[in-house]
Nucleic acid binder design. Structure first.
Lengths: 225, 225
DNA sequence: ATCAATTTTGGAGTCACTTAAAAATTGCGT
DNA sequence: ACGCAATTTTTAAGTGACTCCAAAATTGAT
């Protein structure tokens, strides 16, 4: 059953609202734009906006479902002989090479990130989004190993993998927002990612062990570069 | 300079508001209680409530600073010869033994958890709180090893340690809310925690490696129990 | 062209939260 | 005990996100 005219118009309206909203948000900041303004700019009523989007934040995160579907895709499409971590590592480096936005690492993501940072509510929403991704990882992993529904391990592995991704992305945006050159930052993230995924595979070991005698911490070469 | 009468009354008022609010929230659910009701029950004006608490959620999370100060305490007080992970592990098991609430694992935390779950805004706030804890871990670790301010490793280790704690706590509340007996759940969490902290130290390895021939995933004994 | 289903709109209301200024309370010096 | 200055509380008015409901407009099929 193909898409009727009614459905097409609905989709178009939704998209138009989201696009116009994003334009305003990026230009003036999330908190400085009211839903009423978005509605006016999109030439619809406020109620129509809320008809398509549950909250104002959803206007900003219209494409977040692509982020949430990432874990399942990566885990399911891992190659023969490839472990979960290896698959994620490969996909991450692939995004780095192609400049894909799926891990929040691409040209122009810094304005986006700045706008998020400015707004408490938006930051909170993004944080929740990250938790959802973790949950998706967990479910995908549980399926992949045919685990019991109440098996702890997939959840642990998911949380740890997601931590690595989140940390790398955050690091990218921080350096980018500090004004560093794109190529330089990407190069830096490449090194960071190698360290991070290694640590994910081999563990944090005895990081920050306090020496018995002196009280000075010993930095082991296990995790530290 | 000791506390004047004025400051004492302020503190008392604040505490009274928080206590009354928490009573109402636990009894009737966070979203079913308005700030106006809290104010009326505490016999103050709405603006007085907002004078002491920035948001409605803060009324529920009055003691959250104790959670946020936990990382620094645990890391700084780690014993001679003890690594970061070992210190956290010990502190976690200690809380388990003494029934302390600092990791959200104690009798009666299930009503609390249920009330959080019911409310989207409250869940979101808790999620942000967890991120703050992660950041505290990172800063404490960075201090502990005298790391560069832009060293990646403390952040990675912090994220992973925090992941473990969050996962264990979530698992506890899920089982508790499912009606399982307290002692039984605590016993289960003890086993879970052992697995989780081991994995944190030694890594997730090649979890969920897909076998070359069959396409069937192999569960390695490295991480899996 | 007509009718039923769907989409959009208008209007009234709730609630969290802000701002500014008046009013009440309190601590302190005399 | 009294009055003054600082602090706290309240009052009042408003903003903005979001909900609910019913009226109006649009659309697809006949």
């Amino acid at each position: 059953m193909e898409e009727g005219l009614r459905e097409r118009k609905k989709r178009e309206t939704r998209q138009r609202i989201a696009d116009i909203a994003m334009g305003l948000f990026l230009q003036r900041g999330f908190d400085n734009v009211t839903v009423a303004e978005v509605a006016r700019a999109a030439d619809v009523s406020v109620n129509t906006v809320f008809n398509y989007f549950q909250t104002k934040e959803d206007l900003f995160l219209d494409r977040s479902d692509e982020v949430e579907s990432l874990p399942r895709r990566v885990i399911e499409e891992r190659r023969p002989g490839e472990s979960a971590v290896q698959a994620v590592r490969r996909d991450f480096f692939d995004a780095l090479d192609t400049g894909d936005w799926r891990y929040g690492i691409h040209e122009g993501s810094d304005l986006f990130a700045r706008r998020v940072r400015e707004s408490q509510s938006l930051s909170a929403r993004l944080t929740v989004l990250d938790y959802n991704r973790e949950e998706q990882f967990a479910r995908a992993l549980a399926d992949a190993v045919d685990a019991d529904p109440d098996d702890l391990t997939p959840w642990l592995v998911a949380a740890q993998m997601n931590s690595v991704l989140r940390t790398l992305t955050r690091r990218f945006t921080i350096r980018r927002m500090a004004g560093e050159d794109m190529d330089r930052v990407v190069e830096g993230i490449r090194l960071d990612a190698t360290l991070a995924f290694d640590q994910l595979e081999y563990g944090v070991g005895d990081y920050a062990r306090r020496q018995a005698d002196t009280g000075t911490p010993v930095v082991t070469d296990r995790v530290q570069t």
